[in-house]
Amino acid sequence: MHGMLAWDDLRYFLAVDRHGTHAAAGRALRVAPTTIGRRLAALEAAVGVRLLRRTPEGLVPTEAGLRLRTHAERVEAEVLASERELTGADQRVAGPVRITSGDGLAAYVLVPRLVELRERHPDLVVELRAELRVLDLSRREADVSLRMSRPREPALLARRLCDVPFRVYGSAAYLARRGRPSAVRELGRHDWVRPDATLAGTPQEAWLDKHVPQAHTVLRASNSTTLLAACAAGHGLAVLPELFAPHDSRLESLLPRATGLPVRELWAVTHPDLRHNARVGAVLAWLAAVFPRPR
């Protein structure tokens, strides 16, 4: 080994190991791919061995890389634990706070109401990450995560915010063109806008598979915002959350008494090390005001 290992270099190595490419690692760490490549080259020069090799599936660790990964993950755990402990003791409602949620929730509910939070705490800097994957709170990928199901990780702190009923929606233009269904049995005659594989297996998709097994799908979308936009543009019917579908005035709710439409739960989740953090506390108090109490 020719020099001291720097934590930043280990962080870049772990990001490439987890994401497979310089570009994906750069997106995760919010740095340029060229920076990732440069720091990895410096790390390999420091240890004197090759740590990653290129394959058709992306960059994977060599034998030396696998050994380094074990040590790097231990260093990461200690660094992140220290950050959480120090951040958790911070009593200032100032500086950055990371919130993550699905794209539809972020666009139609959180962003319009963020004005209230910022007016109350003008020194708070909100980092809002709208993505489908569940972020790792132990790695500080987010401080507060909004999830549409109760978290499975028993160590996390979770607060149920509200119920999220789903309804069948269609645009006024589509209904004028194709007619308004009056019963579930008529839904098979209509075009449908549905999620792609990224949202397969969700309760709303399970309901549609059960009650409209021959649904004529005309468009699939990878996120809720695009799904809602496609339905509102008149491409077809869609099963959407009542929480944010009404924000587009072109959409009309159909079949309010339809059997078994899912009702999901919205949860606010944070790491226990942040339970006394003033920024996280301010966000949780704001969220409690944004969403109605569970029935």
Rank of each mutant, 00 (worst) to 15 (best):
M1T: 10
H2I: 15
H2D: 15
A6N: 14
D8G: 10
D9H: 15
R27W: 14
R30S: 15
V31I: 15
V31R: 06
A32Y: 07
A42P: 03
V47A: 10
V47M: 14
V47Q: 12
V49C: 13
V49R: 11
L52T: 04
P56Y: 09
E57S: 15
A64K: 08
G65I: 08
R67H: 14
H71C: 12
E78V: 11
E78H: 11
R84N: 03
R92E: 11
V93A: 06
V97H: 00
V97Q: 00
D103T: 09
G104C: 07
A107C: 11
V111G: 05
P112K: 12
R113L: 11
E116D: 15
R118M: 14
E119C: 13
E119P: 04
H121A: 12
L124M: 13
L124A: 06
V126N: 00
L128F: 03
V134G: 06
A142R: 00
D143I: 04
V144C: 07
M148H: 12
R152D: 12
A155V: 14
A155Q: 13
A158P: 01
L161V: 06
D163S: 13
P165T: 10
P165N: 12
V168C: 04
A172W: 01
L175E: 01
L175T: 02
R177C: 09
R180G: 00
A183G: 09
P195Q: 06
A206P: 04
D209H: 11
V212L: 02
A215F: 04
V218K: 07
R220K: 12
N223E: 13
S224G: 14
A233I: 14
V239C: 10
P241F: 07
P241Q: 13
F244D: 01
P246F: 06
R250P: 03
L251G: 01
S253I: 14
R257E: 12
A258F: 01
G260V: 07
L266I: 07
W267S: 04
V269A: 00
T270R: 03
D273R: 03
N277Q: 09
R279P: 00
V280R: 00
A282K: 04
V283K: 01
W286I: 10
L287T: 03
A289P: 05
A289G: 14
V290P: 03
P292V: 10
R293P: 02
